[in-house]
């Protein structure tokens, strides 16, 4: 599950950071930079863009510390900001010229996907990176970060059934990429039930 759930940021750090204490602000960054960057890499993929987004995320975190009331997990609050920044980037016109738009609003970046998968030597990484951004985001947010379909629906301003069907389509694509010899038989599992 999400690595964010394991991160405990002491409330004292948050209190001090809110007063402008640079040491506390840096400690918060140090505690959360890795999971934030990892999440962004999973959703956005491109390292250079992710580095820019990490900066945007922490600038917003520090700017809006006053609006965190301590009612939930601080790391979870930071994660929600990171997810929002990532999705805003992926849906922005600036990003649209980098990737192609297909019938399901999918945005794919095969070149980057290939590089990333090879760099880390994993078929799964390569398959994930090759997914359209919508499917990749939904798979990661649902299966790893533990978002519910209702929460994903809110993020994308769509219905929960949209989230479910996109998740299934993304899994179908993952299966085809990871097990090409049986990938084409998926439809036999899509009959009546």
């Amino acid at each position: 599950m999400s690595t964010f759930l394991d991160i405990q940021v002491p409330p004292e750090w948050v209190r001090l950071a809110r007063t402008g204490d640079p040491g506390a602000q840096q400690r918060i960054y140090a505690a959360l930079a890795r999971p934030v960057y990892t999440l962004l890499r999973r959703l956005v993929v491109r390292p250079a863009v992710c580095e820019e987004l990490v900066q945007e995320v922490f600038l917003e975190v520090l700017r809006k510390l006053g609006s965190f009331h301590g009612t939930g997990s601080f790391a979870g609050w930071v994660r929600s900001i990171a997810v929002r920044k990532a999705l805003m980037h992926l849906r922005s016109p600036w990003n649209a010229h980098l990737v192609s738009d297909s019938d399901d609003c999918a945005l794919t970046d095969p070149a980057t996907a290939h590089e990333e998968g090879e760099d880390r030597g994993g078929d799964l990484e390569r398959a994930l990176n090759a997914l359209p951004y919508l499917g990749r985001s939904i798979v990661w947010l649902h299966d790893v970060e533990g978002y519910t379909h209702a929460e994903i629906a809110q993020l994308f301003d769509r219905s929960a059934s949209f989230s479910k069907s996109q998740l299934a389509r993304a899994h179908q694509a993952l299966r085809a990429a990871l097990e090409p010899q049986i990938g084409g038989q998926v439809c036999t599992l899509a009959s009546r039930h």
Binding site: A30, Y37, T38, E51, V54, R120, L124, E125
Partner: peptide, 28 residues
């Protein structure tokens, strides 16, 4: 297979970010 795939995704290694704090502090 679906259960195993979810576990495999969750256990993928994390990415290490470059040192971005100086840039963030400067921008702030």
């Amino acid at each position: 297979r679906l259960t195993a795939l979810r576990a495999k995704m969750a256990s993928l290694p994390a990415f290490s970010p470059p040192e971005l704090w100086p840039a963030i502090a400067a921008r702030r």
